[in-house]
Design a protein around this nucleic acid. Sequence first.
DNA 1: GCCGTTTTCGGCCCGACTGTTTTCAGTCG
Length: 572
Amino acid sequence: MQNVDVAALFTELADLLEIQGANPFRVRAYRNAARTIENLSESVAGIVADPDHDLSTLEGIGKDLAEKIETIVKTGHLPQLEEQRAEIPADVREMLRIPGLGPKKVAALFHELNVRTLGDLRAAAEGGKIAELKGFGKKTAQTILEGLALLEEVGKRVYLAVAKPAADEIVADLLASGTVEQASVAGSCRRRKESCGDLDLLAVASDSKGAMDCLAAHPLVTKVLARGETKQRVRLHSGLELDLRVVPAESYGAALQYFTGSKEHNIVVRRRAQERGLKINEYGVFRGEESIAGQSEEEVYAAVELPWIPPELRENRGEIELAEQHRLPKLLELSNMRGDLHMHTTATDGTASIEEMIEAAKARGLEYIAITDHSKRVTMANGLDADRLREHWRNIDAVRKKTKGIHVLCGIECDILEDATMDLPDDVLAEADWVLAVLHYGLKQPRAKIQERLLMALRNPYVHAIGHPSGRIIGQRPGADIDFDELFHVAKEEGKFLEINADPSRLDLDDVHAAAAKARGIPIVISTDAHSTRGFASMEWGVYQARRAGLTAADVINTLPWKEFSKRIARR
DNA sequence: GCCGTTTTCGGCCCGACTGTTTTCAGTCG
């Protein structure tokens, strides 16, 4: 049981209580607890194992929540949550994910229209029932239908940041159990896709039954859905389903290649095999009846005269051609990252002070960072006006003067307002070491208006980069309607950078647009948007997204050593 | 449900926007 799993249970309980109309502050207490646990660097399971522990010293955790955490860690369940689950169907909670539907509206749909499933919801919206409901109207019904389409499109996919740690933990535990000799995650998780629909694990096992038992008893597993000789399907706490396949050692590479996909990539690889009189399947590479390869992926690719291709690139987006010409890029690695240029402190909506963020950045080995709190438009996050920002910068300056071993930039995440002006005047931006311009509001504006806003920001002489350019939230909110061609053109013209925001729910630019930006020669900056010291860990996800875009260290501006980086951002 | 007390109950971040109303509830961030 990891911290994210404990946090997920509290978040679920908060959602359900909110639909029940519970005291909003009680609901918030559960959400705060979830956040605290997620941001914790030690595992709560580890804390509970310590006989002298006291969970109630944690922020937002009192006597009651401390007991609930213990119950979860020890039993894997939370009785209060089970009670709520019995009252409210899972789909009703799912409705909260539809933009425009909050707990009150969901409760009204549930209680007054007896909407229990997403199917019911669609029927009610299409049948005009929803528009008649008090507080609802035609627009709301339309929004719901659009939201449903989005939900269906992404299905029950979870962020890579949820899927990969679970897969890694199970693989490690299988290997440690001694029942398997080799094990790896395959599928979209191995390709580091931003979200995963399920998990595929492959193993070579001398003790196949033991491996299956080990998985069935794993603390992350809630239910065994199906079990056979070589394949077992289970459901995890996160709702994610996981397949474990046990394969013979001589087929391991072939199976790994086969189950890593993508389907499109494999179709091309198999066609190459056909052209060479070979056949590739999950058991190996065959000439007639004879197996000629299969133990490793390298062998499989070599059989079709290709070098091994990194999983992140296996989407049939030109990687086969590059491999053929031996021009595969040397992909960016996490260890290449030297700076982080997007983060928050307690001055706005971060949870750590200037000092704490700087120390945490140093501890991660970063050479330079930019502290970029919100501008005033983001009222909810306590955004900074000119006076507060200048004071904040003075505070940062005071800390950096006495800090050795890291360079700290006084930055700002400045909103691009709906009327295509910047949220702070130029004379303020001119004083910043680093200016990130971002869209937060008015993401649904028509393309022309969005474009006007982005181009205005790119042409502002004090802006260095556009942060999370599209504003999308994976599986929840589509990005703004952007003419990327024009955006790239003007970014190139103005010598501006574009961000890959490494937050696992954003990863924006996405792989496709980041690849397009690279092709235009636009430097990419990958930053975590950390709201806590723990947030720095998100860099990993940003790097994966960059790798999927085929980016090398040379394509990413914050891989540069400080001296060169500081020259690149110096004002002309 | 947590926290901090003027120790045992009252306060807990809230402004803008949207779609619904016809003065505001709900949602978003």
